[in-house]
Write a protein that binds this DNA or RNA. Structure first.
Lengths: 306, 306
DNA sequence: TATCTGATATACAAAAATAGATGAACAAAA
DNA sequence: TTTTGTTCATCTATTTTTGTATATCAGATA
């Protein structure tokens, strides 16, 4: 009981310094001045009794102590942001800020029209989109709603299964004109293909389904599905992407339609506590509706681009 | 972007006002003055645009808005405390504060000698004991380690199964002398018994094992296992408690030893992130060791009281 | 080498937050 | 009814925090 609890604001400046790398940058970020930030860090170091940063003319280098405290500070920031989001939604009706997390491809290629419709229906709603695949987001309150490709296991989360988004092998017509049309799956070995950079759970799943992939040596590697999609569109080579997205461009050709189709399981997930929050509830419902239409035959948001 | 983010300290005073029920009490709690607390609340209300409390000469009554924000503020406080605990543990070796959550009976009757041994072994360790059955504690960082009677499901938690703590029917000799010794299980219906106040998962589990319980009309009802144990010790009647605890008092008699024995599954649980933290790791190990000894035949901490 | 741009540290003035004192309103007890 | 002990609100003096300006240092560039 000898040491007083630090101001919670110190945690915020501490985190900002970690993120920005210098007192000056953190000051700019927070709308304060460099001496103030410096004093905050000094005070925090005094209270916890450990040096948090090594000062240098190039900036501040975090010590081991700072690294250990960092996750806590991040958590704190996420919670403060979540509180503020809840505050914006007060007062009844669908209003305020809702933060949605989705993978890059979903967030950029699939969600926008749904989000536009969501905002049309609820003009007081502000939508934040966070492109990330981390499932932990929801537990850490870094997002209100997530579109995920794996079923979450925590039972504090309510999950709506959408179904499988079909993935297929595709190439741009320009590429095929130049390099020829693969007749058999084996021909892929002699084509320029687009694949993943690092091994991931998803990649292993594909491998199990299609052993041939194992043998392929992609000429273009990227972990970003979005980058892979862009490569297909640019006529770089043959790659895997969502059938519905490929169909939007008449010059993209689907290959081996019968031999290769992979369903990408999709879920909309929300923390149970937010179930009754209007802004989250409404967004959740619109996302489910929109995604169902997207994978279904008919669909308000489906298929071709206007 | 028009509204500035509130000072995180405002959240702390907000929560304290919620907890204490008045500006003055919150001021005393935080070591500030009542006008300051009032200004914090005013400022917070201005920023979020909603009234948080209805002021009255009896104190502050939280509005619906305040109630909605409360869980977030509590979460924030838990995280700030967790950060501070981590800070106390910095610097290598087993030191700092570890917060352990356990049920009342375990925390009061079983753990103390283990915690004493823990502190003997690591004198720089400060131990906080939180008596609670809420499993969520660990996810919310309200505790570092928990002793639980149900296996947690989240896979972010590392769980060590201890085994079943045997429960049995017991009564004090004083009671039996006065009211007679029940010969058959059915005789229990004509005895003063000690039971639960409300239905709970644990109660339902017992019911399933011993249907007779269904018929019993306890003369003493309490949800607190500790109160039930105290009632047994006081000779109030016949109740269920841990065999090992009953054995400590030679005047407490076990009834229907062969007919009634219920194992109470026990687990020591910790968040995965804390696995490598010395203060948590060491405490976890000592708890596991101690509880294993407690339920086992041999045991450093087991059986009788000195 | 001189200079420019980034960084942190320090001294002092300005601004803001806080404490302290007082008043009014209400409830409970004498 | 009066007294006592709460509460919150308001005003002012004081303390604390912050901002400004400046010095200093390290590295990149001409």
């Amino acid at each position: 009981m000898n040491k007083i609890e630090p101001s919670w604001d110190f945690y915020r400046t501490f985190l900002t310094v970690l993120q920005e790398g210098s007192l000056s940058a953190a000051a700019r970020e927070l709308g304060l001045t460099q001496p103030t930030i410096g004093r905050h860090i000094d005070a925090l170091e005094d209270i916890i009794g450990f040096q948090l940063f090594i000062r240098s003319p190039q900036g501040l280098i975090p010590t081991e102590a700072a690294t250990e405290l960092r996750p806590h500070a991040e958590q704190l920031a996420a919670n403060a942001a979540a509180l503020l989001r809840t505050a914006t939604g007060l007062g009844g009706g669908v209003r305020g800020t809702v933060r949605i997390s989705a993978s890059e491809v979903i967030g950029i290629e699939v969600l926008p029209p749904m989000l536009a419709a969501l905002n049309d229906r609820y003009p007081d709603l502000v939508i934040e989109l966070s492109l990330s695949d981390a499932v932990e987001d929801l537990m850490r309150q870094e997002a209100d709603i997530a579109v995920r490709m794996v079923a979450p296991e925590q039972d504090a989360l309510i999950t709506r299964r959408i179904g499988g988004i079909p993935l297929g092998l595709h190439a741009h017509r320009r590429y095929l004109d130049k390099h020829g049309f693969p007749e058999k799956l084996e021909d892929l070995l002699h084509h320029r293909t687009i694949g993943f950079d690092r091994e991931s759970a998803f990649v292993r799943a594909i491998r199990k389904r299609v052993p041939l992939i194992e043998l392929m040596r992609p000429s273009f590697r990227a972990d970003s599905n979005l980058a892979q999609l862009a490569a297909i569109r640019a006529g770089f080579g043959i790659g895997v992407c969502q059938v519905a997205l490929a169909r939007r461009d008449p010059d993209i050709v689907r290959l081996f339609e019968t031999e290769f189709e992979l369903p990408l399981e999709t879920f909309v997930v929300m923390h149970e506590n937010l179930k009754t929050t209007p802004r989250c509830r409404a967004s959740f419902d619109v996302l489910v509706e929109g995604l169902l239409a997207y994978i279904g035959k008919s669909g308000t948001f489906g298929g071709t681009i206007e």
